[in-house]
Each structure stands twice: as structure tokens, then as C-alpha cells.
Design a protein around this nucleic acid. Structure first.
Length: 398
RNA sequence: GGGGGGAUGUCCGAGUGGUUAAAGGAGACGGGCUGUAAACCCGUUGGCUCUGCCUACACAGGUUCGAAUCCUGUUCCCCCCA
């Protein structure tokens, strides 16, 4: 094994923070002395099963640890999910059933394994219900550890408290439970996004209180989403899922602001080298190709790029358009067709027509015509805006 | 336990009896320009069988010719005191 300091420097090169200073190299040295790999922890929430590029940042970091022979311990927060997190103003999150959790956990594992290596000595998957399903005595002992003042200093709590936004006691308990996970699995290192900073450090407090060695904490910058502003998250709709089709990954990547290219390549572990350093468009295309190859399959990048160019350079209609059934005869109401084909309201469809945003076979549809003869539409491609297409076929509509 | 304040469209946020589907902003969407980038310009943004109709300002009921606006009850949230 290489010099711990060299490895540590490599692993923390693109991290937001790796603290305390020298802790990672120290944990590595200890592990090596004990003749074992590092135990690198990542806790995941089994509420949102689909993995997107934002998750990949952290998974990629774990993968780098695996590549150096270390062991990743993935903790599925089945217990905490069952409790139900009431954070935020919206109604209490529905409590997940065991079946939901199992299904989500399985989906997550399947997807995470597109980044992680699935080898028994490099990957261990645990559920925190194994140890969190404890007695009241044990819990109360744990509950001595966090101090209210300390919790309130935490940035998001402080802001919410000052802003008059509810904080439930359960949210205060969360860091404690997460910290106890570190004790239970004997974590040497814990990885998370910068939004997890407090919880990760708090894990050290719990470990110390339990008389265990304290973990090294590595926080990764949050990947900015396709909107170019906020962190990537499914609820903000600015995410790219790693199971999406290549066309989608390519297209959505092309929509990111140029300023994001550097951080995306850095955090997602995409090596573009110095190619076209001064041509943002070419670099973005290279990034998009790389992401397609990686998540949709080797060769998908080139294929998606060709499809993309046909669509936007040549303004051609894509060749793999989904079919949509319309009545086989009589008059059809176009807004209704648009609504059912693209999942928008009829009013939206009507507005799109009025504004000249609807095309049939590439030809603009007249803005003042709302109905059409069904037979004239059969076999045609209906287009809404620039990038939504449906091939209309005759058939029985429900 | 007591007192006070609040709940408006996707979000923020005006509006305290009548031209209010509800100002303004953000976001989103459509069009133009373009590199499905940025910037900029124009338009739209509850639903529908659309010169009109229906549903909407936490929930339920009431007052009134007429309510998001007034009254009563309920739920949830915030603040202060204990």
C-alpha cells in the first residue's frame, strides 16, 4: 500500500473539507498497522430511490477509496425512515412501510453499484435498524451526548429558529442516531455532502462519548443542478438520474450553464484532459458524452450526440418517438391530444397552440385552429415546444 | 396553563366587504436570437365543451344583494409570559 499521506492527499483533492487536519492519513496508518482496510461510511436515506448525479459525487469518492483497497460501508437508514422525518413546513412525511424501504433500498443498491464495486471485501451493506432498535435506557444514555446549545448553533437550525420555522425534537435526535451509526459500524471515515457537515462531525462526538476512535470527516461540495443555481435534487427538478436514457442525459447536460462544466467534471470524476480548454461548447459536449458512456453504456455518448445533432442542428424529428393513440376517425380536439400525449393540461395545450408552439411533422400548426380531422393526423409527429414529440397513430382511445 | 399574531395561486408576497382568477416578484412554459449555454426581446402562466362557464385565498358553518376581506367553531404554525 502506498504512503498514507499520498493517498490521503489524492482522496481529498476535490473535497470541500477533510478534517481534522491529518486525520485521514492517521486513520489510514492505524488501519494499515492493524492489517485491515479503512471502513468508510456513507449513510443513505431509503426515501428517494432514484440515484442522480448529485449522489454520484459522494459515490464516486467512495469508489476511489475502494480502488485503493478500502471497504465501503453503506448504511441504509431503514429505522430512521420508519420513524418518519417531520422536517419542513409541509405535512409530516408519510411513514414508509417495511416493503417501501426494502424496495427503495434495493433500487438504490442496484443504481449505486453502477458507481461502486460490488465485491464482498470492498462493500458492506447494513441497516441501522440492526442497532437503533434499542431500549429506552440505552437511548437515554445516548441522549446525554448532544447539547441543545450546540444543536442550535448548527447553521440550518439557527436560521430556522431565528426565522420562526418549526424544528421538531425528532430533528434534534437525527444527528444523534446518525452519529451512533458510526459507533456501530466502527467507521474510520465518513463521507457526505457539505450539507451533512454538522452530522458528520457530530458522529465524532458520539464516538468519543462511547470511547471509540473518532472518524475522519470528508465533505464533498454539492453538485449544482441543471438550473445552475441550486444543489441538484429531485424535488427541485434540476437533476439528471443515472438510469435515464442517454438522449436525456446528453440533452440535459447540454442545458447546464457553462460555468458548471468545471465543477461537474471535477466532482463527477470525468477526465476531459486539456481538450478544447477554450471551447465551452466542445467541452460540454465531451462531458455529456462521457456521462452517457458511463451511465447508459459504452458507445451511448456518440449515439446520443448524433441524435442530439439531428434534432437541434438539422431540426429533424427524432427517429424513436413514442407513439400516442388518437381516434381513428372523426374530429379530434388538439388540446386534448396534447394533454394526454405530454401530460399537461388542456389549457396548456391550447395556450401552446395559440402561441405557435405546436408543430405537425415539423410544420407549424396554425395558431387559430384547435380541431383537426383524425385521419389527417395518423402517422404524423406531433411536437410541443422544441423537445417534446409524439407519433400519432390510429386506434381506440380509452 | 395564559396572552398575542398568522395560514392567499408552484414558491415568495400584496390585498381588510363590490371593475379580484386575485398587484408585484421568482420560477416555469411558448416564440425570437443561440451552442437545448449566457445575455436580451415578446408572450403566457387554475381548470374547462372558452366572446362563456366552473373552481379557488387552511377547514366547516354563518352574516350580506355581494366575502380572500366581517362573525363563530375546528385544525395547524409562530411569538411572549408562566
Amino acid at each position: 500500500m502506498a504512503d498514507p499521506r499520498t493517498d490521503a492527499a489524492f482522496l481529498t483533492r476535490n473535497a470541500a473539507a477533510a478534517q481534522p487536519a491529518g486525520a485521514l492519513a492517521e486513520r489510514m496508518a492505524v488501519a494499515e498497522r492493524e492489517g485491515r482496510p479503512l471502513r468508510v461510511k456513507l449513510g443513505i436515506d431509503p426515501t428517494a430511490p432514484d440515484v442522480h448525479l448529485g449522489h454520484v459525487v459522494v459515490l464516486q469518492k467512495l469508489r476511489e477509496f475502494q480502488d485503493l483497497g478500502h471497504r465501503v460501508v453503506l448504511i441504509i437508514g431503514d429505522y430512521t425512515a420508519r420513524v418518519g422525518d417531520p422536517s419542513g413546513r409541509s405535512a409530516t412525511r408519510p411513514v414508509l412501510t417495511t416493503e417501501d424501504i426494502d424496495r427503495n433500498a434495493r433500487t438504490y443498491q442496484d443504481q449505486a453499484l453502477r458507481v461502486l464495486r460490488d465485491e464482498p471485501e470492498l462493500l458492506e451493506i447494513r441497516r441501522n435498524g440492526e442497532w437503533l432498535d434499542m431500549g429506552m435506557d440505552a437511548f437515554l444514555t445516548l441522549a446525554r451526548i448532544p447539547k441543545v446549545a450546540q444543536l442550535l448553533e448548527r447553521d440550518d437550525f439557527a436560521k430556522r429558529y431565528a426565522g420562526g420555522v418549526t424544528i421538531s425534537l425528532l430533528e434534534f435526535v437525527y444527528p444523534l442516531l446518525q452519529g451512533y451509526d458510526s459507533v456501530a459500524i466502527e467507521a474510520d471515515v465518513e463521507i457526505g455532502g457539505t450539507d451533512q457537515t454538522f452530522n458528520l462531525y457530530f458522529g465524532r462526538d458520539v464516538q468519543r462519548a462511547e470511547g471509540r476512535p473518532e472518524q475522519s470527516v470528508i465533505t464533498m461540495p454539492l453538485l449544482v443542478g441543471t438550473d445552475g443555481e441550486k444543489k441538484m435534487s429531485k424535488s427541485l427538478g434540476n437533476h439528471i438520474g443515472i438510469t435515464e436514457p442517454a438522449e436525456e442525459i446528453f440533452g440535459r447536460t447540454m442545458r447546464i450553464p457553462d460555468e458548471l462544466i468545471a465543477s461537474w467534471t471535477d466532482l463527477l470524476g470525468v477526465d476531459l484532459g486539456g481538450a478544447a480548454a477554450d471551447d465551452p461548447r466542445a467541452r460540454k459536449r465531451a462531458l455529456a458524452r462521457a456521462l452517457c458512456d458511463r451511465f447508459a453504456g459504452q458507445g451511448e455518448g456518440d449515439r446520443a450526440q448524433e441524435a442530439f445533432d439531428r434534432l437541434f442542428k438539422d431540426r429533424a424529428i427524432p427517429d424513436d418517438v413514442a407513439e400516442h393513440v388518437v381516434a381513428d376517425s372523426g374530429e379530434v380536439h388538439l388540446p386534448a391530444v396534447i394533454a394526454s400525449a405530454f401530460g399537461v393540461s388542456r389549457s396548456e395545450g391550447r395556450r401552446a397552440i395559440t402561441q405557435g408552439g405546436v408543430r405537425i411533422d415539423g410544420e407549424p400548426w396554425p395558431q387559430d385552429v384547435l380541431d383537426a380531422e383524425a385521419s389527417e393526423l395518423h402517422g404524423s409527429v406531433l411536437q410541443l415546444g422544441k423537445r417534446r414529440f409524439a407519433r400519432l397513430v390510429a386506434g381506440q382511445t380509452a
